[in-house]
């Protein structure tokens, strides 16, 4: 069981993630944008963060960069959700320090598998 933070402005996506990963026995916390995500990440000890890229207040790219500046977040897997078509976006997110991605739309078993992949130590 892992402690996972999901950062997305879409309640339905957060809900989808919560149900899928909750069923696997993970503990899910939620944040609604990058600023909220940073605060929650600071206040908790998460095994994984799953974040959207397009969000109000602070986008996912900025949040990933901020997270990676923090020494205690080194090595923590960060997955981003993307619907972006251009490889550029994916590369930017990877350069910012993301571990991997999941392309929307996704089925829950894909999510579970990808999460399993990055959580494996």
């Amino acid at each position: 069981m892992a402690s996972i933070l999901t950062v997305d402005d879409s309640a339905s996506i957060r809900q989808t993630i919560k149900i899928a990963l909750g069923n696997e026995g993970h503990e899910i916390s939620e944040a609604v944008n990058g600023v909220d995500g940073l605060q929650k990440a600071d206040g908790g000890n998460f095994d994984l963060i799953i974040t959207d890229l397009n969000m109000p207040e602070m986008d996912g790219l900025t949040m990933i960069r901020e997270l990676r500046k923090k020494p205690d977040k080194a090595g923590m897997p960060i997955l981003f959700l993307t619907t972006e078509s251009d490889a550029g976006m994916k590369q930017q997110a990877k350069d910012a320090g993301a571990t991997g991605w999941l392309t929307k739309p996704f089925a829950s078993d894909q999510l579970v598998r990808i999460v399993g992949k990055v959580l494996a130590k």
Binding site: R68, P77, A98, T99, K117, V118, K121
Partner: peptide
């Protein structure tokens, strides 16, 4: 080089 910081786990890749 930055893969470890970025959360990639080489050992789990080997397991795969």
């Amino acid at each position: 080089a930055d893969c470890l910081v970025n959360g990639t786990r080489p050992l789990s890749l080997l397991d795969e």
